[in-house]
């Protein structure tokens, strides 16, 4: 079996007051069944927009300009609203960042879990109630029969995120999109939620698309990582390679800026100088060049492609692997081709 989800050369634009803004440019990645793929990046780099595009939830002002998204060999960019609706919640589901506000405040949580089940799997009320209670137990909610009758405001943030996970996984989707699933939670609870997601993933074989800016979460969960910068994927690799030998200067900068326990005390955590460019004023050439310590003249003019440098390791940089002579030759070739 091939890829569960394949995103190919995706370009997403939003209409706004200042005309059209391209917020995601040339994003390609694939997720295998049962795999966890993480998209990492700063706020506004397009990672959430990409995940919303997969759900078909870009809203009225956003649209996919180019590229395609295929899920289980169906082209989602060409799917009707009805097809997408049937897919949402049953095949692909989503958990949001804010467990405090993502549950309906006036409906008992048990009913909210049942609702998805009754809609997608056409379960009877009784079956749905039983499954909801079983699911609550699975996500580690004590006394599920009682808690099912509780309203969201009676539960803590961690409990609510567990409930969100229960709702998202009740129909056993093939893909779970988790948009900053742990950002709003306490650190101790974060660990539990990650562990819970991993357990359920192992049980059901669900693939997870994790959208986050937290490299710690990435390290704990992901099999494969794509780093996004200013609407593009700048580096993608399996998690070990990415953390051990990041190749893109931006990824290296990110890794260096993680506070370390063994750092010299009193020192400042190294930061990447400069700021993320605004979507309206994208620099020419490589989008990272104004902040890149290794930028050369050509970086200002030519936009690098995302180049395969190893097994599923892709980097969008002209300077990749300068130490290896043959690789440089290959890159020069590509460069010249692009230049022509």
């Amino acid at each position: 079996m091939g890829e569960l989800l394949k995103v190919e050369r995706l370009q997403i634009a939003f209409r706004g007051d200042q005309g059209e803004t391209i917020s995601v440019e040339d994003v390609s990645f694939a997720i295998q069944p049962g795999e966890t793929m993480a998209i990492v990046g700063e706020s506004g780099c397009g990672k959430s927009v990409t995940s919303l595009a997969i759900m078909g939830l870009l809203g009225a002002s956003g649209s996919i300009k180019r590229g395609y998204i295929s899920f289980l060999d169906t082209n989602l960019t060409a799917a009707s609203e009805q097809q997408l609706r049937k897919m949402r919640g049953s095949q692909v589901s989503m958990i949001f960042q804010e467990p405090m506000t993502s549950l309906n405040p006036v409906m008992p949580i048990g009913r909210q879990i049942e609702e998805a089940l009754r809609l997608h799997l056409k379960s009877s009320r009784k079956e749905a109630r039983q499954s909801a209670i079983d699911m609550l137990r699975k996500v580690g909610i004590p006394r599920p029969e009682t808690i099912a009758k509780a309203y969201p405001h009676m539960l803590s943030g961690g409990m609510r995120q567990r409930v969100m996970i229960a709702i998202a996984l009740i129909c056993q989707p093939k893909l779970l999109i988790a948009d900053e699933p742990t950002t709003a939670l306490d650190v101790t609870i974060q660990a539990q939620i990650i562990e819970l997601m991993q357990t359920l993933q192992a049980e059901n074989g669900t693939a997870i698309l994790l959208v986050t800016h937290d490299l710690g979460v990435v390290a704990a969960m992901a099999d494969h990582v794509a780093v996004m910068y200013a609407g593009q994927i700048v580096e993608a690799a399996d998690v070990y390679t990415l953390f051990r030998s990041p190749r893109h200067p931006y990824t290296q900068g990110l890794m260096n800026s993680i506070p370390r326990l063994d750092a010299i005390s009193g020192g400042r955590a190294p930061a990447i100088p400069g700021q993320v460019p605004s979507l309206h004023e994208m620099p020419t050439g490589c989008r990272f060049h104004p902040r890149c310590p290794y930028a050369e003249a050509s970086c200002r003019e030519l936009q690098p492609e995302l180049m395969e440098t190893g097994d599923r390791h892709r980097v969008r940089c002209w300077l990749t692997e300068t130490s290896e002579a043959d690789q440089i030759a290959v890159h020069r070739d590509t460069r010249q081709k692009v230049a022509l």
Partner: peptide, 25 residues
């Protein structure tokens, strides 16, 4: 509200979202 958006993400139809998730509020 996030919970209404969550409802959309779960594939609920508009009438259901209006009557069961927005109207009670």
């Amino acid at each position: 509200a996030d919970y209404v958006r969550a409802g959309v993400a779960l594939g609920y139809r508009t009438p259901r979202i209006l009557l069961r998730h927005i109207l009670p509020g």
